[in-house]
């Protein structure tokens, strides 16, 4: 399975986005190779995990943004029972230079990716850290990030539809 196909196809059974500012539990985004067993996020972040089906597989997507500074991350992983195979991290950080939207990913078939790791071996940063980033605006409207905008960002990146009301919880 190729990531580009997972992103391109229509998504089925997209779950509700429930937002939280507590530390995630293992069940929210399990990662077996991480010491605490789940994706590391702290209370300075608002986050939500939505799940969907595509290409005959089940995926979970962590969407998280810092509540005080322009820093955003999304992590798409394939659900592997009680573990997650991370396929791509999408990030934005105003404390990078040059700053802008970038990804850490592997373009090969997902069968070669190890489960349970935040940064599976062989991932590449696209674009490279020192090169120009085409999209440097944090939000298109210039507003601060919030749950609705964050969900919209995720929907555009990963090509899924959602009801706007799903962002309000």
């Amino acid at each position: 399975m190729l990531l580009k196909d997972v992103i391109r196809v229509a998504k089925k059974n997209v779950t509700e986005a429930v937002w939280s500012q507590d530390k995630p539990q293992r069940r929210d985004f399990p990662l077996s190779c991480v010491a605490r067993g789940c994706f590391p996020i702290t209370k300075k972040w608002r986050w939500s995990v939505i799940e969907f089906e595509a290409e005959g597989a089940h995926f979970r997507l962590m969407i998280a943004y810092h509540v005080e500074v322009p820093k955003f991350q999304m992590v798409l992983g394939e659900v592997m029972k009680n573990d997650t195979k991370v396929l791509i991290r999408v990030e934005y950080d105003v404390a990078h230079s040059p700053f802008g939207w970038h990804v850490h990913t592997l373009c090969e078939d997902s069968s070669s990716i190890s489960s349970g790791m935040i940064k599976p071996l062989g991932q590449k940063r696209i674009p490279a850290a020192k090169t120009k980033h085409r999209r440097s605006e944090y939000t298109l409207s210039g507003d601060s990030m919030n749950d609705i905008i964050a969900l919209d960002v995720a929907a555009k990146w990963f090509n899924f539809r959602y009801q706007p009301s799903l962002g309000f919880h």
Binding site: A95, S97, H104, R125
Partner: peptide, 8 residues
């Protein structure tokens, strides 16, 4: 992560 170390 390989990213630059940054702060705010």
């Amino acid at each position: 992560t390989g990213d630059p170390i940054g702060f705010y």
